[in-house]
Amino acid sequence: MAKRKPTERGHGQGASEDPLDLDVTPFLNIMFMLILSILAMTAWTQLAMLNVQAPQIGGGGGGAAPVENLSTLNLTVFVLADGFNVGASGATLDGNSEGRTGEPLITKVEKTAFGKKAIDYDYTRLQQKLIEIKKSFPDEESMIVSADGNVPYEVIVRVMDAARRSADGKILFPAVAFAAGVVG
């Protein structure tokens, strides 16, 4: 064994093997650095855009305001502090029309999420109501959202989500406009 050439050491018995040892360590270093940089650069949260129509007051020049989309129905969803009301062309559906004076049409419900109970808006019933309305007005696609000044943005986005598509993928009222005025 001592008579073997030093270059053959570590290659077992195979004298036929290539004696050239390629050092892969720098290559591995580059790989690790590449992985780290890709991990740092990747956008982990994917964003999307919700299109919104101009509010009813103060629509300035510049963009093409979709005036022809304004319809006769004027479906309006009011987001109040304690629930939703739905209105259309003058009349408002609220708790009063169902004999619950002073209450909104769709009250908040208690929901359990992650083991915690919380009072939250009832988006499911809002969507059911919108599906009902869509059946009577199949060509209608625009909706106005009006909300109490304290309602958080998250709720508005979820109302828009509920109004966009029903569970079976049918388009409900995706053209959302915002009423700047305070809820009546």
Binding site: N51, A54, G60, G62, G149, N150, Y153, I156
Partner: peptide, 28 residues
């Protein structure tokens, strides 16, 4: 996501006033 509606609508009205009428909300 906590932004109150009042601030949001003020921003929208101001955008409309300044000539930006095509709003997009960025969401996850």
């Amino acid at each position: 996501k906590q932004t109150p509606y009042r601030v949001l609508s003020e921003v929208l009205v101001t955008c409309g006033e300044s000539g930006f009428a095509d709003f997009r909300f960025a969401v996850i």
